[in-house]
Design a protein around this nucleic acid. Structure first.
Lengths: 150, 150
DNA sequence: CTGACTGCAAAATGTTTGCAGATTC
DNA sequence: GAATCTGCAAACATTTTGCAGTCAG
């Protein structure tokens, strides 16, 4: 039952990606499908290189360049979000089927805490409306000390 | 009169920086003072490299490495904020004496709009409080389309 | 069959680092 | 005087790119 649902959702997401791609005159290739499958049930933050290494260790042949290119398309399609958790590199997270959330980052232990808050989102929308700005995506990063590290 | 105020504020800020530095067993050098002076009356977002070039063109001798190192200290001292406006590089902005603000970035014309909203800030504080997280700094990036580009 | 894609390796970019000599406190 | 700085150039890490051959629609 659960298994069937997962499959259905995966297919649904692949369809979304495919229609984004074709809207841009791009193609659904084996590699792009593989990337999407690989991140499908992840909820963590990963670097592009890290994802590439996962393929290497699974003996799935895919170049680093292709991983970068696929991630760019996934971000543009809205299925993946690029987040800036530290200044060294970009991180990615799978967003499809998940509730939108923001990040708190602990300066001391580097833990990343995800949270969601409706009133906060509504207030952002209001501010945008007042300024005539049409928001497409956003992210809030709060840096500080988590409960355990204070 | 205005000029005097500016001077007074600059001196005040230099003092803050100096006390941060000495609290970390660091020294107030000519270079660090020069960087602070250079950004003192700026309100824009600049890259480290860009700042270095400004020194080059003013015939002020300072290496790129020193600029990077000075900016790191200024960020840690709280006088400067590092913001992630695009994925290519880090930007910096002078915050001392300015009201805290967030950024909207237009996907189409790349314009950066700054805005501030109290209720938004208060809500963030509440969320942090509820989660036992002690916020030290934060930044909200809203990407979308500005009024002119819609 | 055409245009888009991939892998590769090289290049580009932004940032950091080790070291020798200079400077601050 | 001791510890911290600076400049330099080299090293680094991440990301992008040009090109020749491959593949999707």
């Amino acid at each position: 039952m659960v298994r069937r649902d997962l499959k259905a959702r995966a297919a649904e997401e692949a369809d979304l990606f495919r229609s984004y791609l074709s809207s841009q005159n791009l193609k659904m290739t084996r590699e792009r499908r593989t990337v999407l499958e690989e991140i499908f049930d992840t909820t963590d933050h990963f670097g592009a290189d890290e994802l590439h290494l996962r393929f290497v260790s699974k003996k799935i042949s895919m170049s680093r360049a292709t991983v970068y290119r696929a991630l760019d398309h996934l971000v543009k399609s809205g299925l993946v979000r690029r987040v800036y958790l530290d200044k060294k590199k970009a991180f990615y997270e799978h967003v499809y089927g998940r509730v939108h959330h923001e990040h708190m980052i602990c300066l001391s232990c580097s833990k990343v805490i995800e949270f969601a808050d409706d009133p906060l989102e509504r207030r952002q929308d209001k501010v945008c409306r007042d300024l005539g700005f049409k928001p497409l995506r956003h992210s809030l990063r709060i840096v500080g000390l988590c409960r355990d590290c204070q």
